[in-house]
């Protein structure tokens, strides 16, 4: 337990500089806009007085480090400033949007893992047909653009079959069944490529483990083949799989931006895209910060999971 506690603490401390770099990066975006961001936001016909007022409101005349300090202090208290267009407080807006993005990405990842890991194992231990079928699916899943797949799913399930609504969203708390109907196609869209990656990683990782000497030794102990494959080999293969899941979650967050736009889901991704087109910089900044934080948190969780699966990882750097 002591080993594990130290591992968790060390990994938590290592996350701080990453969060710092990310927050500085996103803070600088609005300051890096060529020319005067306020002029860009307000348009050419803005009066000098209005420009001065907005500059003061956004504290753009303060020294850069003071601006960062004030911004990050606000963020830590859940105060992200206000929407430049609607003047609504961003904290409340994000509180509505984050659950949608989380629901979409987490459900997609769960589906991809639940489908991809067993298929990857079958592809590793199964016969020629299991291998060919999964390889075909992997090539398909990796090559097809996710948003196009989404559109084709809409064409099939919403257009031709009219089983599911083509777009829109109902919160889970309002109507659980309706929520699932609306989220199903987006989740399938986002999970397809993910599943392909997880199959590929699982298969490669399993093949590597099954070729190691301890597998022969397990057979020599009379361990059942099922237990060798699912108990031992899969546990050894799990660390690389979990690592890929963590990395791919970043891809999934990127994909969520597209899929939310495609299916008109009111998530953070769609918020960012709309805000960019409106030059609504405070919203862009807040949205990017939220998604990047999600990514870092998920990376942290994955690393911890990998450490718990494989004790060699959590022992590294300890005597």
């Amino acid at each position: 337990m002591n080993h594990r506690l130290r591992f968790v603490l060390r990994r938590l401390v290592l996350t701080i500089p990453v969060l710092l770099v990310m927050s500085v990066f996103i803070f600088l975006i609005i300051r890096l806009v060529p020319g005067d961001p306020v002029r860009t936001m307000l348009g050419f016909r803005a009066t000098p007085a209005a420009v001065t007022q907005v500059r003061a409101q956004l504290h753009l005349d303060d020294p850069l480090w003071a601006q960062y300090r004030d911004w990050i202090a606000g963020v830590l208290h859940g105060d992200f400033g206000e929407d430049f267009v609607s003047k609504a407080p961003l904290g409340e807006l994000l509180a509505q949007r984050i659950p949608v993005t989380l629901e979409l990405t987490l459900l997609s990842m769960i589906l991809a893992v639940v489908a991809g890991v067993p298929l990857g194992v079958r592809a590793a231990v199964g016969g020629r047909w299991a291998r060919r079928l999964t390889e075909g699916f992997v090539v398909f899943g990796v090559s097809v653009p996710d948003f196009w797949l989404g559109i084709m799913l809409v064409l099939l399930f919403a257009g031709t079959l009219t089983w599911l609504p083509p777009s829109g969203y109902i919160p889970f708390t309002d109507d659980p069944a309706g929520n699932l109907q609306y989220i199903l196609l987006p989740v399938l869209t986002l999970a397809a490529a993910e599943t392909a990656y997880i199959i590929r990683t699982t298969r490669g990782s399993m093949l590597g483990v099954l070729g190691r000497p301890f597998i022969v030794y397990l057979r020599a102990k009379g361990t059942r083949e099922r237990s060798i494959v699912y108990g031992h080999a899969l546990r050894n293969a799990a660390a690389p799989i979990a690592t890929v899941v963590g990395i791919q979650f970043g891809v999934l967050l990127g994909g969520a931006i597209v899929v939310e736009t495609l299916f008109a889901l009111p998530g953070v991704g769609r918020l960012i895209v709309t805000a960019i087109n409106q030059r609504n910089y405070p919203v862009v900044q807040a949205g990017l910060f939220v998604v990047a934080t999600l990514f870092i948190v998920v990376s942290l969780i994955t690393d911890l999971v990998v450490g718990f699966i494989d004790p060699r990882v959590s022992d590294r750097g300890q005597s």
């Binding site: 990066f25 970043g250 967050l253 931006i257 960012i272 895209v273 870092i296």
Partner: peptide
């Protein structure tokens, strides 16, 4: 530090 598509955006 940022996911790829987010960096692009």
């Amino acid at each position: 530090v940022l996911p790829a598509l987010l960096l692009a955006i």
